[in-house]
Amino acid sequence: MTETIAPEPTQEQAALFARVRRLMLIAGLTTALAVAAVLIAIGYRLFRTEGSAVNTDTTAVLPKGARIVSTGVAGDRLVVTLEVGGATEIRTFDAHTLKATGRLKFANEP
């Protein structure tokens, strides 16, 4: 059997081969970077911890004579509107832990 020997590429062909290799390397690296970014995004979504769900029984003590006007949820906050002696007060609680996060009081000007 005789083997066919490929002739040496010309200078133009060698330059073309080098350019194609360089472009393929760029395309391969770009694809690898894109796949890595997608895998990182999926991993982040799967394994991020927002805190575990905790069963909590909490008793919030209201001032004497206070009346709950309304309740609502805003994001990860529980919002309770109270009427205390003619003044309006808004209390916010963390929806996951039920810890108080803020209090806003409204009063009428004298």
Results as ranks from 00 to 15, higher is better:
R103W: 03
D57N: 12
M24L: 11
K99P: 00
R103I: 14
G65E: 08
K105Q: 14
N55L: 10
I68K: 05
F93D: 03
A34E: 04
R103A: 09
L39Y: 05
R22S: 15
P7Q: 10
L29D: 00
I40R: 05
T4V: 15
M24W: 01
A100K: 06
E89S: 09
A6L: 14
P110T: 07
T58N: 08
G75Q: 04
P110D: 06
T2L: 11
N55I: 05
A27D: 10
V20M: 11
Y44E: 03
S70C: 01
T31Q: 00
T71N: 05
P9E: 06
G86K: 03
T101N: 05
N55E: 08
P110G: 14
E50A: 14
D57L: 12
A107K: 09
A27N: 07
A60V: 15
K105H: 08
T97G: 02
T49H: 06
G65S: 07
G72E: 09
A53M: 08
N108T: 12
R22T: 14
L98Y: 12
V35H: 03
E89R: 12
E8M: 07
A27C: 03
L62T: 09
A66Q: 10
G43W: 07
G65M: 02
R103H: 06
V61G: 02
F106G: 05
G85A: 15
E109P: 07
V73L: 11
N55S: 06
R19C: 00
A18E: 15
R45E: 11
F17L: 15
A53K: 08
T49R: 04
R67W: 01
D94Y: 04
L46H: 05
T101L: 13
I26G: 01
V20F: 07
T97K: 03
T59V: 15
M24K: 13
G86N: 04
I90V: 15
V35K: 04
V80N: 02
R67N: 08
R91Y: 00
R103P: 02
T10D: 10
L46Q: 13
Y44S: 09
L78R: 01
M24E: 15
T101E: 12
F17C: 02
T81A: 10
A32D: 00
T31S: 08
K99R: 09
L46A: 12
T101M: 10
R19Q: 14
A32Q: 01
A53Q: 09
L62Y: 04
S70G: 08
E3I: 13
F106L: 12
A32Y: 00
L16H: 12
F47C: 04
V79H: 00
A6Y: 07
P9T: 06
R19W: 00
G51S: 06
E50I: 12
G65N: 12
I68T: 13
T71D: 05
E12K: 10
L25W: 02
N108C: 01
G86P: 02
A18S: 13
T4I: 15
S52T: 11
G102V: 09
A74D: 12
T88W: 00
V61N: 08
G86S: 02
L23R: 08
P7G: 03
A87T: 12
G51V: 04
M24Y: 02
R19G: 01
R48A: 13
A53W: 08
